[in-house]
């Protein structure tokens, strides 16, 4: 794989950083990241991963853009209301960087599609919004031996970590063995 001249120019401030350089930029271009959630966390995550040149970004979400999303889900604009979030986020990412591939999965992540999806990517990013999906993602990432970069938010607090049992690190169940009672989870 090589960078074309437009890409060399685009990523030049990366290429001149010793920590990235040409080899690093090619690693970024060859990488495949699957994002679950195209909302509050997914918006900035997808926009930045795209801008820095991650070669393939997968987006999983089944929701559509709602008026109440706009004040924080910054990849979606007023004109996107009613559109599937994965389409809206894909368009925003590609407008920022047309050199990459964005594959959209306008579907709910389920037990019967998760392993097949994970097999097509190198890194999984969890920006989902419910416990069922978070435990599904954790278990599927473990069985797929893929690192899981996990972030969750509640009101004014956020939690971020990487689960990578495949390299000896903990998984989500090591951190929290069970979810809270359903009645305590804000809907």
């Amino acid at each position: 794989m090589k960078l074309n001249n437009e890409e060399i120019n685009r990523y030049s401030r990366h290429l001149t950083l010793p920590e990235v350089g040409m080899a690093g930029q090619l690693e970024i271009k060859e990488s495949r990241v699957l994002m679950i959630g195209a909302g509050g966390l997914g918006s900035p995550l997808g926009m930045y991963l795209g801008a820095v040149g991650v070669g393939k970004i997968g987006l999983v979400d089944f929701d559509v853009v709602d008026h109440t999303n706009l004040h924080r889900q910054i990849a979606h604009t007023t004109a996107d209301e009613g559109r599937p979030k994965v389409e809206s986020l894909r368009d925003t990412i590609l407008a920022g960087n047309p050199n990459i591939e964005v594959e959209i999965h306008n579907t709910r992540l389920e037990r019967d599609n998760v392993l097949d999806l994970f097999s097509q990517y190198d890194i999984i990013a969890d920006g989902s919004d419910n416990f069922e999906t978070r435990y599904l993602i954790n278990d599927a990432a473990f069985f797929s031996k893929k690192p899981l970069v996990s972030a969750s938010i509640f009101r004014f607090q956020g939690q971020i970590t990487i689960f990578s049992p495949e390299t000896g690190g903990p998984c989500y169940r090591c951190l929290y063995s069970e979810p809270p009672p359903a009645a305590l989870v804000p809907s």
Binding site: G24, L45, D122, V149, I153, I160
Partner: peptide, 22 residues
């Protein structure tokens, strides 16, 4: 604004995993 900050930390960690740096 909170998800912006948190999502960007997530992005940073993903790029570090790819580069095997830091």
């Amino acid at each position: 604004m909170l998800p912006g900050v948190v999502g960007l930390i997530q992005a940073t960690e993903i790029i570090k995993l790819i580069l095997e740096g830091g």
